[in-house]
Nucleic acid binder design. Structure first.
Lengths: 362, 362
DNA sequence: TTGTAGGCGTTATCAG
DNA sequence: CTGATAACGCCTACAA
């Protein structure tokens, strides 16, 4: 690959002049400039990002640290970030933490040796990024947190308005006449799960509806958790007539549980999710859900990051994106009180009937 | 961040010695070695990947170029690659091409200036990577293609056994008694789509079943394409009693079309997909599909790449992974011949009822 | 306006 | 076995 020295020789100018025209760091007189540009064109010269990064103490890379690309909500965020990054000449280094804080730290430590311009992080469970972020900032790199926030986070953030979204979803369910609601919430230490729970409770409160603590179950943000907790909720005496799932994956799991118990949705139980994944409309019945703008979360985060790199030293930004209630067919009116069919008597063996994980071929 | 010079000073040795102990490039006597290691530990020294890359003419980065992370099949591949990469000290730079060859080329060109160890690419439509790959190889970087192959590709490959998978799926459908099959195939220029079509045709041939060319529709690998083409197929006189979808997204679109036409699956039409996405079991009815090991495709690709970097100069590897037929509920016996309900009379306005794209919140 | 030269943090070569 | 020292490709004072 060609380098500046070669271009300089070809154009009959000094190496420094080449650098100046390439970077516009000094006005070079037209004839020289043209000679340089011609040489650049001719050999398709591109400056080495490595050398440049070494010299400038900063590369055009952005570390993107997420729990798991395989989790259907995150790719949208990644894609949004990549689009903005690419449009501005930045590249994304993708890291999966599996929600493991140790792995997260490991990634952050290694990433730093590439001198990225910044980090876009969807924190893992129990994340504490303050120390790491401080170290990155000292090196002139920006760190923005997305979707959920680590403990005591004081930097830039991009989140969805989880509380309002949950509030609206719950209110909608209440308006259909339900009074015994259940919630299958995400991990209690995740701020997004916390806020959705808060919205849920606020809506109940405003309607002066009380539910026992056993109606709120906490689990991980996945199908298996939703399945297990839905089973639990539905086997209670006085089972909920509607369930608010902390996210769509949980809702999908709940749907599996409904199916297993022979309960029809929404005739026997109503269900509403959060995320509005692309496949929510494919389930049976099509899932009502709170849509949150994953792609925009990514673009917003990348944009803040790039602004910071370009010298924006203002106070921390806290972008909160709106959610939107997406009504489909999974919420109906509550069943007549006396129609509650007892289920779950046969449930003793249900542990072994857990939904299969993704099939794998050797 | 600490550098070698500082470590050298702390340990009271020369810079070169530090390099030797860090890289094991020469045996350093124990006392010295220990002093160096202590200093390294104390300040948490990590070598600059930038400087190292500049010097070695190669970094520990792997460019991962895919059509779109947002497409549910690809994240598994990415994840597989990232796991192997991470375990070996490599990082992934993720690039989305949107199946646009120009964008693909742009990515490859820019990536090169980071001197990656190699590239894992899921080629775009009409991809021709021969020139680019040659240039990468000349620079000592490896290039492996995954899932589908560019025109005249002669390098390492990792693919699924698409033809066999499609053959088995089709045979299974035929065994249920169907004789009028339709196929909604992926883009004709994609090798994976071609091979699935080939498997489909081979199964038909072996059963001596002939279908007119209008029973094979080609479209893009997405829900919208599946929806449109399914509508078309189902409005034919003598419509197929079973449809083989080129991938699950197409199948999902077909399901939407069934729903719109009031056709029950599998009573009125059977359907089978390809990919076995995690959400195939959530649809109504649960979708039978050919499962292909995306994660393993990623790990295999990364492993080949790393082997190459480590000096494996053998002939091109062509890894073909097995698929597995996943039987759920979307394939049944064909409906009685005279029960074909005419549909589609009201379909004139259907263009406007296209499935919505993902909702976006401003 | 243009050129020169030092140095970013490493690795690798080559004396000692 | 250890220590200088010269690149790697680029940017940026500073000098001309």
């Amino acid at each position: 690959m060609a380098n500046m020295k070669q271009i300089a020789k070809m154009a009959g100018v000094s190496l420094g002049t080449v650098s100046h025209v390439v970077n516009g760091s000094a006005t070079v007189r037209e004839p020289l400039r043209k000679r340089v540009m011609d040489a650049v064109e001719r050999v398709g010269y591109q400056p080495s990002q490595l050398a440049r990064g070494l010299r400038r103490d900063k590369t055009n890379m952005i570390g993107m640290v997420i729990p798991d690309v395989t989790n259907p909500f995150f790719p949208a965020v990644v894609r949004g970030a990549e689009d903005i990054a690419f449009a501005n000449g930045y590249r994304l280094m993708l890291c999966n933490t599996d929600n493991d804080h140790a792995k997260e730290i490991a990634h952050l430590n290694e990433l730093r040796t590439y001198l990225p311009s910044g980090l876009i992080v969807i924190p893992s469970n129990f994340s504490d990024l303050t120390a790491q972020a401080a170290s990155y900032r000292k090196a002139g790199a920006a760190v923005v947190c997305v979707d959920r926030l680590p403990r005591d986070w004081n930097g830039d953030t991009v989140t969805a308005d989880n509380e309002t979204g949950a509030y609206e979803a719950t209110s909608y369910v209440l308006r259909q006449g339900h009074t015994r609601l259940g919630m299958i919430s995400g991990p209690g230490n995740l701020t997004n799960a916390q806020n959705r729970l808060k919205g849920f409770k606020r809506a109940l409160q405003e309607s002066r509806i009380h539910i026992g603590p056993e109606y709120v179950q906490e689990t991980s943000f996945d199908k298996h958790g939703g399945y297990t907790k839905a089973l639990l909720l539905l086997r209670m005496i006085g089972r909920p007539t509607a369930i608010f799932a902390g996210n769509d994956m949980i809702a999908f799991g709940a749907l599996l549980a409904f199916r297993e118990l022979g309960l029809k949705c929404p005739e026997d139980v109503s269900l509403i999710g959060f995320d509005d994944l692309e496949l929510a409309e494919m389930t049976s019945p099509p899932l009502s859900s709170v849509s949150q703008p994953g792609y925009q979360m990514g673009t917003a985060a990348a944009q803040i990051l790039i602004d910071r790199v370009r010298g924006d030293h203002g106070p921390p930004e806290h972008i909160v994106l709106e959610t939107a209630l997406k009504i489909r067919d999974s919420v109906g009116v509550p069943p007549a009180e006396n129609s509650e069919r007892v289920v779950g008597a046969m449930g003793a063996t249900s542990e072994s009937r857990t939904p299969r994980r993704r099939a794998s071929t050797p």
